[in-house]
Computed example of a mutant assay.
Amino acid sequence: MKVSIRHLLTALLLSVVCFAAPRANAQQGTLKVMTYNIHHGNPPAKEGLIDLEAIAEVIKGQAPDLVALQELDVLTKRSGGIDEVKKLAELTGMYAFFSKGIDHEGGEYGIAILSKFKINKTERHLLPFKEGLKAEQRSLAVINVTLPGRIKIDFACTHLDLKDEHRLLQVAEINKILSVRKGTVILAGDFNLTAATPAMRILEQYFSRSCQADCQPTSPDLNPRNEIDFVLLKKGSPFTVSSHQVLNDIHASDHLPVVVTYTIKN
């Protein structure tokens, strides 16, 4: 009988720990965020394979509170009719929000956000492009969540165009949308630009990059050369960067994930 009681108490303790884990980061005064271009779940070395389990394992291995994802398929022929946003939400146990960029192969293609916290509000903003120059529709996804301690923040995800003519318009629009917000705003994604470009300098009028010097490249996954995936914090926020990390030797996508931990000042 004593053995059974001990086993029961152990099981109860484990269940409490598992239940508390998703909120542990923010409860300890930190917020952990990730940005990851997942290449629609296709590992670059395995043409045609969709391996969302590998993407989910990368995310779960870091246990972030918020994740900005780019290049997701929803019900497309290319990805076997899978709703990748819904599937990743199930695999990670997180809430999700999808923002469509374009229609693609019978489905939709765009960006998404995963959150360990219940989502209070979602927004999808279409980003501009230069008239007369070929472009793929891009968007800005924004969610609002409440952290432990009743702190509300906006977390935004984007994937900017390859052409500078479009990016300049897009970052100006992002500033217009997010700079006027009074609370904390974190912006993350694949910006398709480097820190030295004019478009980044426009963003930095209102935002600060999580890494300022000796920053590691994020693309491609094999022998990475370019830092084009970023996490930025709106200036004036009570948060400070405590760590910035690019996860190397991760080959579930053609980009490397970026993980940033912020300390939340009381």
Rank of each mutant, 00 (worst) to 15 (best):
D51M: 03
A156Y: 12
C211K: 02
I5D: 14
F98L: 07
P43S: 02
A26D: 12
N226W: 11
L114C: 04
D103T: 09
L114H: 07
P128A: 02
L232S: 06
R225Y: 03
Q205I: 04
G110R: 08
A252H: 05
L162Q: 08
L133T: 09
E131P: 02
G61R: 08
T122W: 09
A156D: 11
I228M: 11
G149L: 07
Q216C: 10
E71F: 05
R150N: 15
V258L: 10
L232A: 11
L247W: 00
E108D: 11
H40V: 11
P198I: 05
L233K: 04
Y206M: 03
I202K: 15
L14P: 15
R209E: 07
T76W: 04
K234Q: 09
R124I: 04
H39S: 01
T218C: 03
N226H: 10
L133R: 11
I102L: 10
G93A: 04
H255I: 01
R78P: 13
K265H: 03
E53N: 08
E165F: 10
N192R: 06
A195Q: 03
I102A: 08
L203T: 10
A213M: 04
M34L: 07
L69T: 03
Q137K: 14
G61L: 05
P238N: 11
S253W: 00
G106E: 10
L75R: 13
H40C: 10
Q216S: 14
E173I: 11
D229Y: 09
S242D: 08
G41N: 12
I50D: 07
I228Q: 09
I55G: 05
T261A: 09
G149E: 08
L12N: 02
L9N: 05
L72N: 01
